[in-house]
Design a binder for these strands. Sequence first.
DNA 1: CAGTTTTTGGCAATCGTTTGCTAAACCTCT
DNA 2: AGAGGTTTAGCAAACGATTGCCAAAAACTG
Lengths: 358, 358
Amino acid sequence: MKNNKDLPVEEHSGPLMADVARLAGVAISTVSRALANPGRVNEKTRAKIDAAAKQLGYTPNAMARGLRVGKSNVVMIVLPGSLYYGVSQVIPQVLQGINRSLSQNGYHLMIANLDRDEISERHILDLAFGGTVRGAIILSSDLPVDGGRSLKDSALPIVSLLFDMSHAALPSVVTNDRQSVRDATSELIALGHRRFLYLAGPVGNYHDNERYLGVLEALAEAGLSETAVIRSGGTLDYQHGFQIGVAAAAEFADLTQKPTAVIATSDDMAISFMSCVQRMGWKIPADLSIVSFDGAPVCEYSSPPLSTIEQPVEEMGQLAVSLLMERIDAPERGAATRHVISSKLIRRESFGPARPSI
Amino acid sequence: MKNNKDLPVEEHSGPLMADVARLAGVAISTVSRALANPGRVNEKTRAKIDAAAKQLGYTPNAMARGLRVGKSNVVMIVLPGSLYYGVSQVIPQVLQGINRSLSQNGYHLMIANLDRDEISERHILDLAFGGTVRGAIILSSDLPVDGGRSLKDSALPIVSLLFDMSHAALPSVVTNDRQSVRDATSELIALGHRRFLYLAGPVGNYHDNERYLGVLEALAEAGLSETAVIRSGGTLDYQHGFQIGVAAAAEFADLTQKPTAVIATSDDMAISFMSCVQRMGWKIPADLSIVSFDGAPVCEYSSPPLSTIEQPVEEMGQLAVSLLMERIDAPERGAATRHVISSKLIRRESFGPARPSI
DNA sequence: CAGTTTTTGGCAATCGTTTGCTAAACCTCT
DNA sequence: AGAGGTTTAGCAAACGATTGCCAAAAACTG
């Protein structure tokens, strides 16, 4: 094993556990036990070993360990297409929170982008089935499939974030999209608004569904008809939020009976919508109230400052991680619970009482 | 090897290469060669093997392969603290571009957050020295150190992105911060501006240095004194861009001799500054011209639309990846080249001729 | 059909660590 | 000093793939 015959160099990599053992004057198995198990080795020798390891700058080979014990310390996050883009900052904040929590648990974060193409799906499945990752957090309503393999029937612990996938047996961490939009809408109704414009995400999308239902519920509760709200958009993905807002502004300009309040499902849409509509001469909030979703920091600095429903993404990310840790530690496959963390409306100047008449 | 004595179950993981070999009726070494080497095996048997692999849903174990061949297919990106936050979207776009390029090269992306604390530095070094990652792209001007280990003297191929670290023997991909700011400043001078306010990033920061130098160079070229520019900020990190802008607005209000043009080193600062200053009654661009840096999409929708120097971050990310691939393939340790990709000023309504007099 | 080339099959070593085992070494306490 | 209990050494077998080697088999060639 250590008879490196007559090969003088071993440039390939750093010091091995055998080197540490030799320097510390102990057996290799003792080193292994000292570094991994807490109590199985005497304190004095452990100190000796630690010193030797530090002196050599020894770092255990993660792949060798992973291969042996059959597990890795990597978690992957599956992100839909380019959900980056724009301003909403939801994804970066999520990454931030998740990465921090994972670090504290001794895990690393790997990014897997779920584009529509076959190759990215295969990559994700390779990670999942190739033993590279120990668990996954997904931000998408459909799991990748390739050939005979599917994330769904992998033994990998998975937690869904932002999307409610508890029906698919995945523990899910979501915000109360519907309720928070419903509350916001009710508030607008209380301010006298009776006609609404809803800026939609892609039709069929979980968030768009929920938020729109929130609007409808508020209307119903107030005894208003569903015709009180006009849907705009629905074809583009959230990543094209700005375009959606621009298009919606044009649509708004053409309406004969103008709504007095706008509910946007992302800050991007709201920002570009507001900008366009102001350029056309409408006053916010005098002519038109606007409320949007996400809670991007920039909303505070638009003119007027934009009211938005803030998602506690960092907190959600942390919860997702701790759920994942539970699943990893105790792989009992029951109880796909749904955890809701409430968003809250940040009230700013972009909305106010409805204009008396239109 | 395959005499699993009398253990009935092997739930641990999916099918092995041995299973594929058995199903395809070939030897295990043939399977290995078929899946890795392109030409070493007959086309017919390779097809048989592929079919068997697909039927079983076989995925090679990445850690076993990695251990054997001594390399992984993971690249890590080292991000400074929480550079996320805000609106500038530089980081998310960088991640996007890098991840896409890496995927095309068969690599995966791992995120390593370089917070100030010791634990995160250790994590990064564990990744580097533990054989987990094959290369690194860093977005920071200082490399992590822990105990006797330092990224600097690891054999890991590293490429620096956004920061010029060619002096530290790292190939670097940067934009022409200085030149682009200089050009923008010159343009403002040509419009009659003679007094400037510069919204600074943290003092000592590479980008802040470069961009400020750009301003100074433009002033010098026009025969103006350095006193023509007032620096504001310099204490907070870029992640607190909004706060910097707010503080700068207050500072601006107190100035007895007002500048007529503002040069901000990030979009965040510019946005919050503009918002505050407008609220105080100043008109943009009539009273004050503003130009900022980054090229966040949202700038198009502020009021007035914000002029900004757009960094081609996606392109820079791609270049960084291809440089890294070169380093990986040919680990000759020479030529730490510096690659510059030009940013360009996007002219919008936030700047114009200087107000006749102040 | 013999001779040559291409393709496979087996075998075995290897990557660096973990872990079960037995026996030896050490320590503590009467 | 010997009993009883901890620790450690040393050995060896994993983990799942890659790879060099040689012989066997198959496929071509003339």
